Amino acid sequence: MRKTTSTEATKKLGQTLAPYLHEGDVVVLSGDLGAGKTQFVQGVAAGLGITDDVVSPTFNIVIEYSSGSVPLYHFDLYRLEDASELEDVGYYDLVEGDGVAFLEWGEKFPEELPYGYLDVSITVSDDGSRVVRVHSVGDRARQLLCVWSNDSRSHLVKTSSKLN
């Protein structure tokens, strides 16, 4: 868990994850509109050496960024109504492909998520700060969360209580 108090802090948190990402890693991002999901991905992209402007893929459904150390596939599944539409946007090929996949609104289709993924939930507190909660599903995601949380730059803390 981590509390960020600015857009830059949310981006920096994403940037601290980047060095640990490998081909095939999947991160599911959940949170209300405007919570900071795309800002988090912008930080990851910067950490991967991606120089393109990273924007929300709301209208494109998926945007590929290939100028970094590993391709980044940024999905926004908000506008999809049915899991059958995932095939049309290349979801399965890209999630199981040669890069890292970030799935905004991936929780809409839980039965279509891969075996392992990192789940990042971002909520907005009353004071405007963001609370970022992370948990892992599967062995690789557990390893990823372990090394990321042990990185002093991430400032992730284990807690069973809410951060306010």
Rank of each mutant, 00 (worst) to 15 (best):
G43T: 05
G43N: 04
A45H: 01
G47S: 04
L48G: 01
G49H: 01
I50F: 03
T51Q: 11
T51P: 03
T51C: 04
D52R: 09
D52Y: 03
D53Y: 10
V54N: 01
V54G: 00
P57F: 07
P57T: 09
P57W: 06
T58D: 04
F59Y: 15
N60T: 15
N60R: 10
N60S: 15
I61V: 15
I61G: 01
V62N: 04
I63N: 15
E64Q: 13
E64S: 12
Y65I: 00
S66Y: 05
S67N: 03
S67L: 04
S69F: 03
S69R: 15
V70A: 00
V70P: 05
P71H: 00
P71Q: 02
L72C: 08
Y73Q: 05
H74G: 07
F75P: 02
F75M: 02
D76V: 05
D76R: 03
D76S: 06
Y78H: 04
Y78Q: 07
L80D: 02
L80C: 06
L80Q: 04
D82R: 14
A83D: 13
S84E: 15
S84N: 13
S84M: 10
E85F: 08
E85I: 07
L86T: 01
E87M: 08
E87D: 14
E87K: 12
D88W: 12
D88Q: 13
D88M: 13
D93N: 08
L94N: 06
L94Y: 13
E96W: 04
D98Q: 11
G99T: 05
G99Q: 09
G99R: 08
V100F: 02
V100K: 00
F102N: 05
F102K: 05
F102H: 08
E104R: 04
G106Q: 05
G106Y: 04
E107N: 14
E107R: 11
E107M: 09
F109M: 11
E111Y: 11
L113K: 00
P114N: 10
Y115M: 11
L118F: 05
L118E: 00
D119S: 15
D119E: 13
V120M: 09
V120I: 15
V120Q: 06
T123P: 04
T123N: 12
V124C: 09
V124W: 06
S125P: 02
S125H: 11
D126V: 09
D126W: 07
D126H: 10
D127C: 10
G128E: 14
V131N: 12
V131G: 04
V131P: 06
V132S: 01
V132K: 02
H135Y: 11
V137R: 15
V137P: 01
V137W: 05
G138F: 09
G138H: 06
G138P: 08
D139H: 12
D139T: 13
R140Y: 07
R140W: 06
A141K: 08
R142Y: 11
L144G: 12
L144H: 10
L145P: 09
C146L: 14
C146K: 14
C146F: 13
V147D: 11
V147K: 13
